[in-house]
Design a protein around this nucleic acid. Structure first.
Lengths: 252, 252
DNA sequence: GCAGGCCGTGAATCGGATTCACAATCGCGC
DNA sequence: GCGCGATTGTGAATCCGATTCACGGCCTGC
């Protein structure tokens, strides 16, 4: 029954957020759900399938935030940035889930999951593309984006997507950015995004691109579009929300 | 003995390239090396440690290519792009190894590896940063980069790094880019990089940024800097080199 | 030649995902 | 209400593969 599938996914999400991806076990998950192990396998072929389903459900739930960003009635350039803000907000609420997302995109998980789940994941991201396509189309129509440099809308926004994805990835590999003396990855992300949009010639250009202006922009978007304060990771943190679960043993 | 450690790593690399990351087993690796399982564990605490060591060794070996790019005596802007080309060339030669890299950056592996190996990985990437720092410093000195927008050299190049990392990640998740109708991720990557550099105001600007010009630029860099032809993935492929190992079962 | 330590071995152990024989429950015809 | 086949849920048993460790062989110093 669909209700039970949801229970499993919700419980799994809880467990992962509480104890980390590393320690998720099918047997403990079953116990936490009050179900037998075998029952989990009535819903999901493998553990990888379950993880992929979880990531998919998560992507679907973020869709709401993205839609809000895309529907916001502001300048086209800021609408696109608002989507990036939505992404960051979602991540800050649930950092573990990004790690999950990153993990399932890995060959080891992706190729071990069933075609069905993979397709569901792909389907779940399609609406995001439509939203982005819409933003670009509108920008072109409004004259904010005089030149697409021969790219389709989805190719164009891929640059921003890569920027976000890359930064998330680096920000999550513990110690990696520290060792490169990068202190505020998320503020840097929005700076880079503005520079990239400037490179596209997406009007109105932001010039000069400097910390204060970028922070103000992000805060404005948070407030006007989502009615939320500036996310912690943009405001102060060197990393995502402080990790509250007990530190995993550093090594053995 | 160090020689034996190298044998293990080389054999592991072979196995992964031949049969994929998914199916690497310590016992089979031991057999392939002509060693006992226990012997592997004299060198590496865990499987994750071994994978991380492999990725580290790989990063070190790519350093040669990167150094060649950085040492090339061309315009500063193209020197930076040459590093991205080096990255792409290395990946094309060994796509499995990128998947490995991506996998080890994942929480599940990264946090399961020993501190020692993690530090070695971080150390291995430090020289790359120095190379990039050097390129940026030179660009500033030469007047090619009039404004760093308040960023340190390493923050600035992080944008390009994220762009590459993000695109690699997406290009490797089978079917993901196809479903978004992105046909030539690597040509697109270099286009985006040029747009980003334009956004930085890194002279000489490329304008207009179009397919033919970008392809010509990448080919020029391959030839002049590395004495190699245009990599397949930039020239034609929708993805990295055609996958020659037997297809993993799509699902169960 | 011999005791002691070191190294390499691979069979045994262990953890955890997956399966499957069985039990419980259900729906239906009588 | 009752019996019976079908369907669903169970969790102990199985299986796989990473990791360990008790052993045997080798080398070194005496």
């Amino acid at each position: 029954m669909a209700r039970r599938e949801q229970l499993i996914l919700d419980t799994a999400r809880d467990l992962i957020q509480r104890e980390g991806l590393l320690t998720l076990q099918m047997s403990r998950l079953a116990r936490a759900c009050g179900l037998a192990v075998g029952t989990l396998y009535l819903h999901f072929d493998t553990k990888e399938d379950l993880l992929l389903a979880l990531a998919t459900g998560n992507a679907e739930s973020r869709l709401g935030l993205f839609a809000r960003a895309a529907a916001w009635n502001g300048p086209s350039r800021e609408r696109l940035l608002a989507v990036a803000v939505a992404d960051t907000l979602a991540l800050e609420q649930a950092p573990e889930l990004f790690r999950l997302h990153q993990y399932v995109l890995t060959e080891v998980v992706w190729n071990a999951a069933s075609l069905r789940q993979r397709q569901r994941m792909l389907d779940a991201t399609a609406p995001i593309q439509s939203l982005l396509d819409g933003i670009v189309a509108r920008a072109i129509a409004d004259g904010d984006l005089p030149d697409t440099h021969g790219m389709a809308a989805r190719e164009l926004v891929l640059g921003a997507w890569c920027q976000c994805l890359g930064m998330h990835t680096l920000a999550h590999a513990e110690g990696l950015l520290d060792s490169h003396e990068v202190r505020q990855p998320y503020r840097l992300l929005f700076k880079q995004l503005n520079l990239l949009l400037n490179g596209y010639g997406w009007l109105p250009l932001m010039a000069p691109v400097e910390d204060a202006a970028v922070a103000a922009q992000v805060e404005r978007l948070c407030r006007h579009v989502f009615d939320l304060p500036l996310p912690f990771c943009v405001a102060h943190a060197r990393r995502l929300a402080p990790d509250s679960r007990p530190a995993t043993e550093a090594s053995r």
